[in-house]
Computed example of a mutant assay.
Amino acid sequence: MQLRHLKTFVAVASDLNITRAAERIHLAQSSVSEQIQSLEADLNAPLFDRTGRKLKLTEAGQRLLDHAHDLLARTEEARAAVAAATNTTAGTLAIGGLETLCASYLPPLLAHFGAAHPAVRLQLKSAGSGELRSGVKSGALDISFAFGEPPQTPELKHEVVAEEELVVALPAGHRLAGQVTVGPSDLRTEPFLVTEQGCVYRQMFETAFAQDGIRPRIALELGSIAAIQKLVAEGAGCALIPRVAASGDGRIVTLPWTGDNSQVPVSMIWHGGRGKRPAVRLFLEAARQQFKPGDARPRRATPFR
């Protein structure tokens, strides 16, 4: 059983979609299929049920997945032990983040860490908050970054490394565009553009207007911040977003939000059982020291034990 085949199996088992798994691990779909078939031949058991429209794990596949993460983690530990004997830090680090953070916050941190530890291979994946937590929990990701503070779980630790200012995005010709700041009472009659229920950006909106008894009308629900900002530019409504997510479109004005919860935390999440790996430990410390993107206000917090 080859380790690269096992890594590919874990990627497919996580996504239950060969196309998405191939994109995530940077392989052609044909290569992913060939590696899965080779692993099945080696184990003499089908790992996926391919009869339906959706890929499913067989019982044998589920049992392999139960062991796969531990096997891969032990492999990384072995690499780290060998690297420690030669006074180098090596291995692979899979980092995840919300798309906004991957595009703005994380590149400087990854570049700095990569220059300081060239033997560590870095991988970056963009995903939603729920998928990021699941990835850290399963071992598909070593560390992830997201807005907000995640729910407490026994196996996951998190630490707030920064706070990002919330702003209201308005069309450039809006009646409030000339103000210095904007608060709930200014927006009671304004149509708002929001993301779908369950999204972290939607949660920011719901939380911001929860305590004042003022809730603007929701005009549209959209699937992305980029789509929301394009519609703001067209005059379809306003939006509440983190400043770092604001586009540079000249047709949009962003004003600081002065209501409750005017800032949103940026959290770093990792698995407590894997946090002692040298590469993980060094990356966590690098993030604490270097994570100062944009106008965010870094804040040190004690991680959950």
Rank of each mutant, 00 (worst) to 15 (best):
M1P: 02
L39D: 13
S262M: 05
D70E: 13
T302E: 15
A60Q: 09
S126G: 11
K125L: 12
N17V: 15
E34C: 04
L65F: 06
P107T: 02
A22K: 03
A245Y: 03
A233C: 06
L282M: 06
D186Q: 04
E190W: 04
G235N: 12
R4D: 15
R281A: 12
R133A: 04
E196R: 01
A85D: 13
E34F: 04
I241E: 14
V253C: 07
V136T: 08
F48H: 01
A81T: 09
I252H: 07
Q229V: 04
K56N: 13
E165W: 01
H112L: 15
A21L: 11
G178Y: 02
V253Y: 04
Q290V: 01
L101Y: 05
A116F: 09
L27K: 06
G114K: 04
L6G: 00
G294L: 04
S134E: 13
V182D: 07
L222E: 08
S38D: 14
L71E: 10
R24T: 13
P216G: 08
S30K: 08
H117N: 14
A226I: 10
L156T: 00
D212G: 10
G135I: 01
S38P: 00
L101I: 07
G148S: 00
A246Y: 12
V266M: 11
L55H: 03
Q35P: 05
S33W: 08
A94F: 08
L39P: 03
S126D: 09
S38R: 09
Q2H: 07
E155F: 02
T207L: 08
S14K: 00
L72S: 09
A41V: 02
I218T: 10
A28W: 12
A28S: 14
A115V: 07
H158P: 03
L255H: 12
L57P: 00
T181A: 09
R277W: 06
N87S: 07
E155P: 00
A81M: 06
L3Y: 03
A236C: 13
V161Q: 05
R305D: 15
D15Q: 13
V167H: 05
D15E: 15
I269Y: 02
A90M: 12
G91M: 11
P108T: 08
L16C: 06
A233R: 04
N17D: 15
E77G: 01
P118C: 04
A11C: 02
P118D: 09
L6N: 09
P293C: 03
I252V: 13
D295S: 01
P108F: 03
R217S: 15
F192Y: 05
L6Y: 00
R281Y: 07
